[in-house]
Design a binder for these strands. Structure first.
Lengths: 272, 272
DNA sequence: CGTTAATTTGAAGACTCTCAACTGGTGTGG
DNA sequence: CCACACCAGTTGAGAGTCTTCAAATTAACG
């Protein structure tokens, strides 16, 4: 946490969201500012989605819209797919669009004055990224895909137009703000409070699980570095805590970095 | 932080915002759940304020409203004054109103599963408390006045009515949500990250200052317990850090618990 | 002026961080 | 196919920071 050289903020926040209108797909900002390792342009434009038939319609921002409302959308809403590690936008970039996450997982990062980073939120399918675009003119976080991500890009003009014409969008926007505030508060009370082991336990209880081959819910963890940046502890501490949980049998590794959790045991450790 | 017996949540959250329509004015929840010490009913109803001539109109929720909009407000907007230590509402209370803070300082508290508390936000004049009332049905924090507080109570019905009729309120609501998210993120990165001394320094840089007798800005601190609950450290650690700063001359006590701060020195300690 | 609450201080121990070394998997080039 | 470099994860040891528990000191209040 008090690691790493000054990096991040100042440099490297120029052309994102620039001339093209897709998410800016830069590489994961590597910690030492060293050479780029990951693939280059990772966004794949997939055309204009059918919002009305969207598979996560009821989760997404346009959940409440009706037939007539869709006619008000005159600007294109593009769909993109990006690889894990891609930067969707950088803090400070001009904010011209909201992104609806259709699948995958995204971290929102803020850089501290010493150059280290803190993850302030995770966004999951159905979440809307960059809400600040509706009231401000620049993004406040750096958004990085943690897995392969599918998302829709909604220009702010669309939001503003719809806002004027239909009240139905308002409720969705307010609910999304509300969710952000709630997650931020939870982050503070659950993930930034108490011993490192308790934080890790709460984190494991909170992350999304998927049904494994045998139906048992499993979760793929983040890198130890990301876990540390979420919990406000060092990478080593995060690693130690997870290694401890493995040894004590509270979590069991199925595939590499994919675990089955004993939730009851975790709840005890979390201090419930 | 891992102190104090289980208290808070379960008990004592019944009649607030109950039959009377003022803020529920209970006593500060004392740490040991012991006998009530502070004054009893501390709210003083001050009648219906003149929103259009409100002294902090441009700061407040109704900043953008126009003459015609005010005619849409058919429910009374009451003005209250409460003493330091009063509880404005409790987490879990039915949320029927927003509160606009006209003067004073309020803490928003969440209780942890072990009964200890964490302060997740401070609210200052112009801020709106209980935004969640517009989208949910219960308050998510316990709001406690840290000083004598003057506030207006706006029933949610007023908000909903205005929302339907005028788009001007929307912008204000969104901006307030936005501010809440931003403050939450700042709380996490600035006040819950780094060493205890750095946190205290950032806290001192952040708290509101007033011009003292000689024009030098001074700040009245909170109790050491509250400072600890804000920064995620124990009361003792908070006390030690502040005592250190006093001894090293970075802050100078003018009146009891009121200080002049050497901001440059604080910035160094904060790690800027 | 006596009592109670809040703050300050001490000392010991627990917990994290730091720095460094080691491990195992991956990818590359010979 | 092997040797090598590289990276994320793991582990160790020592230093340093916080917490804990207790006691002393200072303000607050009837």
């Amino acid at each position: 946490m008090r690691r790493g050289p000054a990096q991040g903020r100042g440099a490297d926040r120029s052309n994102a969201e620039g001339e093209d209108n897709g998410p800016s797909c830069k590489q994961k900002p590597s910690r030492e500012g060293d050479v780029v390792k990951r693939s280059r342009i990772e966004a794949a434009w997939r055309g204009q989605p059918e919002c009305q038939g969207c598979s996560i319609r009821d989760l997404a921002l346009f959940a409440d819209l009706q037939q007539a409302d869709f006619n008000l959308i005159h600007l294109p809403i593009d769909e993109f797919e990006v690889e894990a590690g891609s930067v969707l936008y950088n803090g400070g970039d001009e904010a011209r669009a909201l992104l609806t996450l259709r699948s995958g997982l995204v971290k929102l990062v803020q850089y501290l004055s010493d150059g280290s980073q803190r993850i302030v939120r995770l966004q999951r399918p159905g979440d809307t990224l960059g809400l600040e675009a509706t009231v401000g003119d620049q993004y406040e976080h750096t958004a990085v895909a943690l897995r392969r991500v599918l998302l829709c890009r909604i220009p702010v003009e669309v939001i503003h137009r719809l806002s004027q014409e239909t009240p139905r969008l308002h409720r969705q926007l307010m609910m999304r703000w509300h969710n952000n505030v709630r997650q931020a508060d939870t982050w503070l009370t659950a993930l930034s409070t108490g011993s490192a082991k308790a934080r890790v336990a709460r984190f494991l209880l909170d992350i999304p699980k998927e049904a494994g081959a045998d139906g048992v819910p499993v979760c793929e963890l983040l890198s130890r570095e990301d876990i540390g940046a979420m919990l406000g502890v060092t990478t080593e501490t995060a690693s130690r805590m997870i290694a401890d949980l493995k040894r004590s049998g509270v979590i069991t590794e199925r595939k590499l970095n994919t675990f089955v959790c004993n939730e009851d045991a975790l709840r005890v450790l979390a201090g419930e």
